[in-house]
Design a protein around this nucleic acid. Sequence first.
DNA 1: CAACAGTTTAGAATGGTTTTAATTTGTGAA
DNA 2: TTCACAAATTAAAACCATTCTAAACTGTTG
Lengths: 142, 142
Amino acid sequence: METQSTPPHRLAALARLRDAKLRPTKQRLALAKLLFEPGDHHVTAEILFEQAQAAGVKVSLATVYNTLHQFTTAGLLREVVVNSACTYFDTNITGHHHFFFEDSGELIDIDGANVDIRGLPKAPDGARISRVDVIIRLSGQE
Amino acid sequence: METQSTPPHRLAALARLRDAKLRPTKQRLALAKLLFEPGDHHVTAEILFEQAQAAGVKVSLATVYNTLHQFTTAGLLREVVVNSACTYFDTNITGHHHFFFEDSGELIDIDGANVDIRGLPKAPDGARISRVDVIIRLSGQE
DNA sequence: CAACAGTTTAGAATGGTTTTAATTTGTGAA
DNA sequence: TTCACAAATTAAAACCATTCTAAACTGTTG
Ligand SMILES: [Mn+2]
Ligand SMILES: [Mn+2]
Ligand SMILES: [Zn+2]
Ligand SMILES: [Zn+2]
């Protein structure tokens, strides 16, 4: 009987959690898988909760919120603020910007590497820039 | 006895309401005065409500919310989305951007005329850009 | 003035998010 | 493996900015 090797995606999720010093619980592992396997995307707590249920993962909404915040604090996720109705979390943690479809709530990434912002005043004295967000708001109307 | 002339600030508030086709009620007039006399600034519903109370204006929080939304719809105010905890309204309706102090919640305007953003992809087909928001987030730490 | 639509309001409801406090689970030592 | 303990999960309640409801009030117009 061969040694059962851990599948690579599980390894990746485990490694992420280990690096973030978060215990690899069933729930965190399952949520990490849902978040990081599909590639860059944006979720709300509610959406991730539904995806977990659809995938048969037994997890509470409170844990989804806890996990999203812990991952954000650990730098595995980023929060995107586009409206006050609900919080989006972004699995793309590189410097980038967003199109925001105001009608549907959909977000699309804009690579930050090509974007150049000129003419900004320097930050007020004693302040440190933690991030520059550019949000292009789109109305449905043609 | 001379004719009592309407003071200019009251005239201005009246004119704004007339142009916006909103009835000049006591509450709207008082809120317009608090909003538009001091020059460009940013308020939340709660802040404006407190300012009204401090000024002895009898108005309910519900009316403050109603009025802020009506003024926004009429183009007299702009909403600024910087965090999901509460909604800011901006009396500066020209194209401009913001410094946002994440610690204090304070907003400072950045004149849009000097800012030039290059390298943005064009809007997806069928979409119309309703606004481009630039938010520079500042942490307290030096 | 009267009549009526528009406005205000207190209080209830909403809904995304956080908190509570009890239970369960992961970990490291023995 | 077992134990003990800290960490994590959870159902349920609480929170709180905002919106809704429906009854009272007010501005306008004739
Ligand atoms: Mn948060
Ligand atoms: Mn609104
Ligand atoms: Zn993104
Ligand atoms: Zn502003």
